[in-house]
Amino acid sequence: MPTSVDYSGYFQQMLGGVSITVQMLLWSFVISLAIGTVFGILRTGASGVVQIPLTIYISIMTGVPSLLILFIIYYGGSGVLTALLGYDRSFDVSPFSSGVAAIAMVNAAYVCDLVHGAIRNLPKGQFEACTVLGLPRFHAWRLILLPQVFRLALPGLVNIWIIILKETSLVSLVGLSDLVTVAKTAGGATSEPFVFLIVASFFYIAMSTLTVPLANRLERRLNRGQTPVGA
């Protein structure tokens, strides 16, 4: 029967796994937020040249399992890149980058839907006022419209953040040593898989629970100036 001292090494490895999981989470979220916001803005335009590919993209990303998209990028990605960019170089797709790419691509589609919905819920006068004041479009979006969009889209974005946190666990299936991989290996080595897996699940629960107060603070900040008089 191993003592608790023997486990300390494994728990240190798990901290390393946590760091990889958190890095995956941050990269995937930031990239999906950026791409999703741009797509959401493009989606409000009327031009079919942009709308049709965007509709196809969103339909694929919301209709196919993330795991399969991850597999396609990880196993098929280097071949596609080589074919696209020339056979004289070879491209290695790392588990980390393909994981970030897959999760970001899938969730960008969901962010796009959210942002698009939020833009449509903005009062029309906001757009008209920007035009009347002669604000360049970039500044209008950056200073006037997007801050309001993010206020409206915040609850959905918090949801996506939690979904991405859990989706990062998929990268353990293409060989990245994230928290789940480490917990599984440590469980196998000590024949105490339950303990390590439960610790891992508590990390995910703690992370998503911690999100709630942080999201509330962010919401208060984004809602400043929105409080009705007398409330």
């Binding site: 859990k166 989706e167 789940v180 898989p193 339950f194 897996l197 699940s201 995910y204």
Partner: peptide
């Protein structure tokens, strides 16, 4: 059961 990824749940 909402907070734990399904992958971890299956492993458990």
């Amino acid at each position: 059961f909402r907070g734990t990824p399904v992958l971890v749940l299956l492993y458990i």
